[in-house]
Amino acid sequence: MAKLSLGLNLGYWGSLCPGENHTTMAQEAERLGYDSVWVAESWGNDCFTPLAWIGAQTSTIRLGTAIAQLSARTPAACAMATLSIDALSGGRFSLGLGVSGPQVVEGWYGQPYSKPVTRTREYVDIVRKILAREEPVTSDGEFYPLPYKGPGSWGMGKPLKPITHPIRKDVPIFIGAEGPKNVTQTAEIADGWLPLYYSPYRQDVYADQLTGAKPGFEICPTVLVNINDDMEQALYPVKAMLGFYIGGMGSAKRNFHKELMARMGFPDEADEVQRLFMEGKRDEAIAAVPDQFADDISLCGPKGRVKERLVDWENSPVTTMLVNGDVNFLREMAELAL
C-alpha cells in the first residue's frame, strides 16, 4: 500500500486577502515534503488566481483547485485557465471541480441548478477534449452545446481547438462529490475524488460507489486535525464546522451535507442539528453534533492518540490527507505522517 501523502488545503478567503501568509505556508509545505496545495472558491476570491501566485513562488508542490465551481465559468474558460497554470507551473496543476449547491448556483451565478450529475459529465468531457487538442471541439450536450445554436445565436459559431498547445493532455481532474450517483460517476470519469467528509471507520458508505475507479485513482479528503489533550476542546472546531454545514449550508428541503451525515449512520441527529440551527440556536446545534461522528471524520485528541489513529487513515483507500493550519502545525503533521 502506498504511503499516505499530505496536502495543504488553504480553503477560500474570509473577509480579507491573506496576503503573503498563504504563500509562506505553501513554501513551508513544499519544504516539508507535502504533496500538494489546494485553493477553494465560494462567493469571494476565485481559486485559479491564488494558485498562479503560489505557483510562481514554489517549484515542486502540486497545485490544485478544491474546488472550482462549474457554474463560475464555461468548460472552455476552465480549460483555458487549466492549460495556462499547468504550463506556467511546469506541469504541476490538478483541476478540482464541483457543482456547488443550488443556493450558490442560482443565487450567485444566476443559473439553474438542474441535473448536476449530467452537467458534470458534460463539463469534464469538454475540458478533456480541449486539453487533448486533437480536433476542433464540438459538443451536442444539453448544457454546453458547441457551437451554440440556441436562442439569440447568430448561426456563425465555429468549432475551435486551443491556439496554445497544452504541455499535458492528461491534467488530472478531481471532482468534489457527495451524493451516491455523483461519487459513482466520479470514480468512472475522474482521476481523483475530493470528499468533504470521509471516515476510515465507515468505508462501507462509499465502497460500492468506488468500484469503477481506474488504477491510480486518488482519494483526497480534507481532514480537520486538532491536537489537544482535552478531547472536548479538540472536537469543538469539528462540531462547529459540522453544525454550520449540516444546519445552514443548504435549505430545509435539500442539504447534501445533512443527507451524507444520515448515510454515514446519524439520520436522527442530522435532523436535530438542522432543526436547531434553523431555529437560530447555533450553540445548541453544535452541541447536538455527535462526538462519534465528529471524531470519525477528523483526527483529534492528544498527540499520541492522533498518531495511533493516523494508522487507520494510512490503511484506508485515502491517498492524500488534506489539512490546514499554521506553519507550526504543518511541521507537526509532517513529523507525524511523513
Results as ranks from 00 to 15, higher is better:
Met1Ala: 14
Leu8Ala: 10
Gly14Glu: 07
Gly19Val: 01
Glu20Arg: 14
Asn21Gln: 14
Asn21Asp: 15
Thr24Ala: 15
Met25Phe: 09
Ala26Met: 08
Arg31Tyr: 03
Arg31Val: 07
Ser36Leu: 10
Val37Met: 03
Trp38Thr: 06
Val39Pro: 09
Glu41Trp: 01
Ser42His: 13
Cys47Tyr: 02
Trp53Ser: 04
Ile54Tyr: 03
Ala56Phe: 01
Ser59Lys: 15
Arg62Val: 10
Arg62Asn: 14
Gly64Pro: 04
Gly64Met: 04
Gly64Ser: 14
Gln69Leu: 13
Gln69Asn: 12
Gln69Lys: 11
Leu70Tyr: 02
Ala72His: 04
Ala79Trp: 05
Met80Asp: 05
Ala81His: 08
Thr82Glu: 06
Ser84Gly: 07
Asp86Ser: 00
Asp86Ile: 07
Leu88His: 03
Leu88Gln: 06
Leu88Ser: 02
Arg92Val: 08
Gly98Ser: 10
Gly101His: 14
Gly101Phe: 11
Gln103Met: 11
Val105Pro: 10
Thr118Ser: 14
Arg119Trp: 08
Thr120Gln: 09
Tyr123Gly: 12
Tyr123Ile: 11
Val124Leu: 00
Asp125Cys: 02
Lys129Tyr: 05
Ala132Tyr: 00
Arg133Ala: 04
Glu134Leu: 07
Glu134Phe: 01
Val137Lys: 03
Gly150Leu: 04
Pro151Phe: 09
Gly155Pro: 03
Gly155His: 00
Pro159Phe: 06
Pro159Ile: 12
Leu160Pro: 03
Leu160Val: 08
Leu160Trp: 04
Thr164Gly: 09
Asp170Met: 13
Ile173Cys: 08
Phe174Ser: 01
Lys181Pro: 00
Asn182Thr: 14
Ala187Pro: 13
Ala187Thr: 03
Leu194Lys: 10
Leu196Asp: 10
Leu196Trp: 15
Pro200Gln: 07
Tyr201Asp: 05
Val205Ala: 01
Ala207Ile: 12
Gln209Asp: 07
Thr211Ala: 02
Gly212Asn: 12
Pro221Ile: 14
Thr222Ile: 14
Val223Ser: 08
Leu224Asn: 06
Ala234Trp: 04
Tyr236Cys: 05
Leu242Ser: 01
Gly250Met: 06
Ser251Lys: 06
Lys253Tyr: 07
Phe256Ser: 11
Met261Pro: 05
Phe266Pro: 00
Pro267Ile: 12
Asp268Pro: 04
Glu269Met: 01
Glu269Val: 03
Ala270Ser: 13
Glu272Phe: 12
Phe277His: 14
Gly280Val: 13
Gly280Cys: 11
Arg282Cys: 13
Glu284Lys: 15
Glu284His: 06
Ile286Tyr: 10
Ala288Arg: 10
Ala288Ile: 15
Ala288Asn: 13
Val289Cys: 02
Asp291Thr: 06
Phe293Ser: 01
Asp295Ile: 02
Asp295Arg: 15
Val306Glu: 07
Glu308Asp: 13
Val311Cys: 08
Val311Gly: 03
Asp312Ala: 15
Asp312Phe: 14
Ser316Ile: 05
Pro317Cys: 09
Thr320Phe: 00
Val323Gln: 12
Gly325Trp: 12
Gly325Gln: 05
Asp326Thr: 09
Phe329Val: 05
Glu332Arg: 09
Ala337Pro: 04
Leu338Tyr: 13
